[in-house]
Simulated scan of single mutants.
Amino acid sequence: MSCESSLPENSIVVGCGAVGVDFLATVAAFPKPDSKIRSTSFKIQGGGNAGNALTCVSRLGLKPRIISKVADDTQGRSILDELQADGVDTSFMVVSKEGTSPFTYIIVDSQTKSRTCIHTPGFPPLKPVELPESSLLSALDGARIVYTDGRLHETALVVANEAVKKNIPILMDAEKLREGLDELLKFVDYVVCAAQFPQVWTEASTVPRALVSMLLRLPKVKFVIVTLGKDGFIMLERSVNDVGLSAEEEDVDKLLESLEIRKNGSIYHPACISSSVKKLRAEGIGSLFGQLYVGTAENIPPSELIDTTGAGDAFAGAILYAICANFTREKMLCFAANVAAAKCRALGARTGLPHHTDPRLAPFISCSSFTSSS
Rank of each mutant, 00 (worst) to 15 (best):
M235E: 05
E237R: 03
D253G: 15
K254T: 12
D253A: 13
L236F: 15
P270Q: 01
K254D: 14
I234H: 02
I273L: 09
R262H: 11
L259W: 03
E260G: 06
Y268L: 12
I267T: 11
D251W: 10
I273T: 01
L255N: 02
F233N: 03
G244S: 03
R238D: 11
L259K: 00
R262M: 12
M235P: 00
R238L: 10
D251K: 07
S266K: 13
D253T: 09
E248N: 12
D242M: 01
V240C: 05
A247Y: 10
S274Y: 04
D242N: 04
L256P: 00
I234W: 00
I267V: 13
I273N: 03
G244V: 02
E260P: 03
R238W: 06
D253F: 08
I234S: 03
G244C: 04
K254H: 09
L245F: 13
S274E: 05
E237Y: 00
E260S: 08
I261V: 10
C272S: 07
S239Q: 02
D242P: 00
N241P: 02
L236H: 02
V252S: 14
E250Q: 11
L245N: 07
M235I: 07
V240H: 06
S246D: 14
S266D: 15
R238I: 07
R238Y: 04
I267K: 12
L256I: 13
L236E: 05
V252C: 14
G244H: 02
Y268G: 05
K254L: 15
R262L: 13
S246A: 15
P270G: 05
K254Q: 15
R238N: 10
C272T: 04
D242G: 04
A247K: 11
A271L: 05
N241I: 06
H269G: 01
L236K: 04
E257M: 04
S246L: 08
D251S: 09
S258M: 05
G265W: 12
N264E: 11
N241L: 04
N241Y: 05
L259Y: 07
F233M: 07
H269I: 09
V252I: 15
